[in-house]
Design a protein around this nucleic acid. Structure first.
Length: 561
RNA sequence: GUCCCUGUAGCUCAGCUGGAUAGAGCAACGGACUUCUAAUCCGUAGGUCGGGGGUUCGAAUCCUCCCGGGGACGCCA
């Protein structure tokens, strides 16, 4: 399933057996084994895998690290059968470097071919994880921050699925609270304006043209009929209409961006069902809620936060935070083993009290991970563009997809660490295609497809895998590709563990680079039948891996460019 | 003022739970197409990892203090 992990486990066993043997012979003294690492050295001269155990044991064993390593290496060489291992050496401050024979790499093609589009998936863990992301306000267009959140969240969800988790994608709909009131005010003002009344627009209202368009649709549907209704009723009808339209728009746009959710969760439903009230009562009974200046406060300072937070306003209305507590209770009640929220960094102040609330509710706050993503700053030809729904001066996700393309946009967002502040220059992204490395990767895939087209045209087909001898692949470029392909499942695991979607973008770039290099150095189609078959097999597994990695990123793998 | 992120090659960024001589792309310069797509490859050059101190066998990575950039600190979400 995971060639790298398999090999690491094997070496780990070899080392532990060796250490036990040394202990039994009184050659190295130690009580317990340290938590040592088997890692892949950066330098090729340092072997295929390296181990730091000797350095970690030096203190307890009262022995120089190199000395420990030398004893261990000798014992391993004596007692182990040394299958897979060509040689072991001690290097640097006490690293033990393993040089493997290539036979383990030659097992990779069969594995990849058999797994096909499933290559990259690890064993099931029987753990359910929920990823909530984007959760944009349904009062406006999707902006660049939502785009980044979408790319990061969806890619992360894909990674977790392949790491063996059962994943659900969720969008939290903020269809309640103050902003909806403000949304209603904005709709009301626009409606009255469009039907010939001279009314002022609310100061902090949603001034974007998208709201005007929505109200134009309302006018098309109802004409001036709504004027005859009481304001409250009119507002209700308009909000319902507008939310429906907006959500529809959000859903469609995100689908165009390659994102499909399992669950759309309504904040309003938490209020309507009484779950917000219930959770506040619960916390009140537990002593986490107190009254001050007419409002009810959550005592988050008890749980490590800097300041307490209002949950029920003096006017009796619950805050967004109150609903969010109920929402997270609901998440854990649904039985998720791991809950991940992708939030913009502007919400970071909310993290500590959210975790505190989860703890107060009696759940393990470590099961909640909040992935903060730094904000996107948008530029157009070097000039900063302010992103605000209210002022309406923003580039929407639709426009981004239209201008830059889904694949380039998703790759671009996924390529960078969530922690990096992202300056996105639209002019640059459009003009300089070389700065969209997505083409580089897609081109590798298309090139491989082209080889198979050429082969087919010449009547050449790839024999069944078990009739091919991968051992004929001996060039440095070939071995490097095998090795890189073998890395993929492990790369997925690391990306999942560290919540680092950008690792996959970098991985597939490196894989594509190795392929392009191979392509320029080795011919696939030539006279020698055996080597030709082996190389066809090699590029086939590279193609599968590129395709699968691009799938993780939500980027298409074209067969022709 | 407090908190979060960030500072690595000219530019944009990697660097996994501390590991060996800090990497990639773009830009620059020099090469490679009668041969499976040159949207490619090969080579050269480019660094005080913002700065000081500390922790240890070992620090770009961890701690601390400064300096610079972004963001958050509301009975908004």
């Amino acid at each position: 399933m995971n060639p790298i992990e398999k090999m690491k486990d094997f070496l780990r066993e070899v080392i532990i057996d060796g250490l036990e043997a040394a202990k039994n012979r009184d050659m190295i003294k130690f009580e317990s084994l340290p938590c040592f690492a088997i890692e892949v050295p950066r330098e090729k001269e340092h072997g295929d895998f390296a181990c730091n155990v000797a350095m970690l044991m030096a203190r307890e064993a009262r022995m120089a690290p190199r000395k420990i390593a030398e004893i261990l290496v000798r014992i391993i060489a004596d007692t182990q059968k040394m299958n897979h291992i060509n040689r072991i050496e001690v290097a640097g401050p006490g690293f033990i470097n393993f040089f493997l024979s290539n036979d383990w790499l030659y097992e990779v093609p069969v594995l990849v071919c058999n797994m096909g589009e499933k290559y990259g998936y690890n064993e099931k863990r029987n753990l359910r994880v929920q990823v909530e992301f984007v959760s944009a306000n349904p009062t406006g267009d999707l902006h660049m921050g939502n785009a980044r959140g979408g790319a990061i969240g969806d890619t992360l969800a894909n990674i977790l699925q392949r790491a063996g988790y059962d994943v659900e994608r969720e969008f939290y709909i903020n269809d309640a609270g103050n902003q909806i009131e403000l949304f209603a005010d904005s709709l009301e003002a626009r409606y009255l304006q469009l039907t010939g009344h001279d009314v002022p627009f609310p100061e902090n209202g949603y001034a974007g043209k998208d709201v005007i368009n929505t109200v134009k649709n309302i006018v098309l549907k109802y004409d001036k009929d709504l004027l005859r209704l009481p304001a409250e009723e009119r507002r209700e009808i308009m909000v319902e209409y507008a939310l429906k339209e907006k959500l529809n728009y959000i859903k469609n746009t995100l689908e165009n961006f390659g994102i499909v959710y399992d669950v759309w969760f309504s904040e309003k439903s938490l209020h309507d069902s009484g779950k917000v009230d219930q959770v506040i009562s619960f916390l009140r009974e537990k002593g986490y809620i107190y009254e001050k200046e007419g409002a009810w406060w959550f005592k988050s300072t008890l749980l490590g936060d800097e300041k307490d937070e209002v949950v029920i306003r003096a006017n009796g209305m619950p805050t967004y935070f109150a609903a969010d507590i109920a929402y997270h209770k609901d998440k854990f009640d649904r039985g998720f083993d791991w809950v991940i929220n992708v939030w913009g960094a502007d919400h970071h102040g909310h993290v500590a009290r959210m975790k505190g609330a989860v703890q107060a509710l009696g759940y393990n706050p470590e099961k909640l991970d909040i992935l903060l993503m730094q904000l996107v700053r948008l530029y157009r030809g070097g000039e900063a563009v302010r992103m605000s729904k209210r002022t309406g001066t923003t580039v929407t996700l639709d426009e981004l997809i239209e201008e830059v393309g889904k694949d380039a946009a998703r790759f671009f967002f996924a390529m960078r660490s969530p922690d990096s502040h992202l300056d996105f220059d639209l002019e640059l992204a459009k003009r300089q295609s070389m700065e969209n490395p997505v083409y580089y990767v897609q081109y590798a895939h298309a090139r491989i497809c082209s080889i198979f087209r050429q082969a087919a045209a010449a009547g050449i087909g790839m024999p069944p895998v078990n009739e091919i001898d991968p051992g004929l692949l001996k060039e440095e470029e070939e071995l490097g590709l095998l090795r890189k392909v073998a890395d993929f499942p492990e790369e997925i695991c690391i990306a999942a563990r560290t919540l680092a979607p950008h690792r996959i973008a970098r991985y597939v770039l490196e894989l594509a680079a190795l392929f392009h290099s191979f392509y320029n150095h080795c011919r696939v189609l030539h006279k020698n039948g055996g080597l030709q078959d082996a190389r066809l097999l090699l590029v086939e597994i590279v193609r599968i891996t590129i395709k699968n990695a691009l799938d993780v990123l939500g980027v298409a793998a074209p067969e022709q460019m």
